[in-house]
Amino acid sequence: MKTLKCPLCGNELTSIFRMTKTGSLKNKYGCLICGWETFELRKNENLAWKDAKEFISKFPPIMRSHQGDNLKLDFEDDVLTLIGKDTSRGKLYLQNCDGDVEIATPEDVEQWPWELEQKGGSNDI
């Protein structure tokens, strides 16, 4: 299973178990840093994972990418690393392997982090 990041702060989401009034354990996903979590308690972790994945996929791509993520621009052959972003202006600040900084917009991105091959999981968000 691939890692999901919080769309608000970029922290890795974790599985959260809650005890219901009837005494059964139910599951949801959430962020331990900012407190965001999926609304529904689910009977298994896979359903909770799908809820989180579906919700996060509704955020614009610039909101789902965070510092340290890799992405590819349509006019650049190399994969670049996101070093910062200005969401209000729609600007991405990227660094190449030589340390040069590139400024791009979401329209310039050919492949977002979840579209690039990733170690340890699928890239299907």
Rank of each mutant, 00 (worst) to 15 (best):
Met1Ile: 14
Lys2Ile: 10
Lys2Pro: 15
Lys2Arg: 08
Leu4Asp: 03
Cys6His: 00
Pro7Phe: 07
Leu8Asp: 00
Gly10Leu: 07
Gly10Ala: 09
Gly10Ile: 10
Asn11Asp: 13
Glu12Ser: 14
Glu12Tyr: 01
Glu12Leu: 07
Glu12Pro: 13
Leu13Gly: 11
Ser15Tyr: 00
Ser15Met: 10
Ile16Tyr: 00
Ile16Asp: 02
Thr20Ile: 15
Gly23Glu: 08
Gly23Arg: 06
Gly23Phe: 11
Gly23Lys: 09
Ser24Val: 15
Ser24Glu: 14
Leu25Arg: 06
Lys26Asn: 01
Asn27Trp: 00
Lys28Phe: 08
Tyr29Gly: 03
Tyr29Pro: 08
Gly30Asp: 07
Cys31Met: 07
Cys31Gly: 12
Leu32His: 11
Leu32Asn: 11
Cys34Leu: 01
Cys34Ser: 02
Trp36Met: 05
Trp36Ser: 02
Trp36Ile: 00
Glu37His: 13
Glu40Asn: 13
Leu41Trp: 07
Leu41Ile: 12
Leu41Cys: 08
Leu41Glu: 09
Arg42Trp: 02
Arg42Thr: 07
Arg42Pro: 10
Asn44Val: 02
Asn44Tyr: 00
Ala48Asn: 01
Ala48Gln: 02
Trp49Arg: 11
Trp49Ile: 10
Lys50Glu: 05
Lys50Tyr: 06
Lys50Met: 06
Lys50Gln: 06
Asp51Thr: 14
Ala52His: 04
Ala52Gly: 08
Lys53Thr: 10
Phe55Val: 08
Ser57His: 02
Ser57Thr: 04
Pro60Trp: 00
Pro61Cys: 12
Ile62Phe: 01
Met63Asn: 15
Met63Thr: 14
Arg64Asn: 08
Arg64Met: 04
Arg64Asp: 04
Ser65Asn: 06
Asp69Glu: 05
Leu71Trp: 01
Lys72Met: 06
Leu73Cys: 14
Leu73Ala: 13
Leu73Val: 15
Leu73Phe: 13
Asp74Lys: 12
Glu76Trp: 13
Glu76Asn: 14
Asp77Trp: 09
Asp77Glu: 12
Asp78Tyr: 04
Val79Met: 01
Leu80Gln: 05
Leu80Thr: 04
Thr81Leu: 11
Thr81Pro: 14
Thr81Phe: 05
Leu82Trp: 03
Ile83Arg: 09
Gly84Ala: 12
Gly84Asn: 09
Lys85His: 02
Lys85Trp: 00
Asp86Met: 03
Thr87Lys: 12
Arg89Glu: 06
Lys91Met: 09
Leu92Asn: 02
Tyr93Ala: 09
Leu94Ile: 11
Leu94Arg: 11
Leu94Pro: 15
Leu94Lys: 09
Leu94Gly: 13
Asn96Ser: 11
Asn96Tyr: 04
Asp98Gly: 05
Asp98Ile: 03
Gly99Tyr: 07
Asp100Val: 14
Asp100Leu: 14
Val101Met: 15
Val101Leu: 15
Glu102Leu: 11
Ala104Ser: 08
Thr105Leu: 01
Thr105Tyr: 00
Thr105Arg: 03
Thr105Gln: 02
Glu107Arg: 10
Asp108Ala: 10
Val109Asn: 03
Val109Gln: 03
Val109Cys: 06
Glu110Gln: 03
Glu110Ala: 06
Glu110Ser: 03
Gln111Thr: 09
Trp112Ala: 05
Trp112Met: 04
Trp114Arg: 01
Trp114Met: 01
Glu115Thr: 01
Glu117Lys: 14
Gln118Arg: 12
Gln118Ser: 13
Gln118Met: 12
Lys119Asp: 15
Gly120Ser: 08
Ser122Ile: 13
Asn123Trp: 14
Asn123Asp: 12
Asn123Ser: 13
Ile125Cys: 10
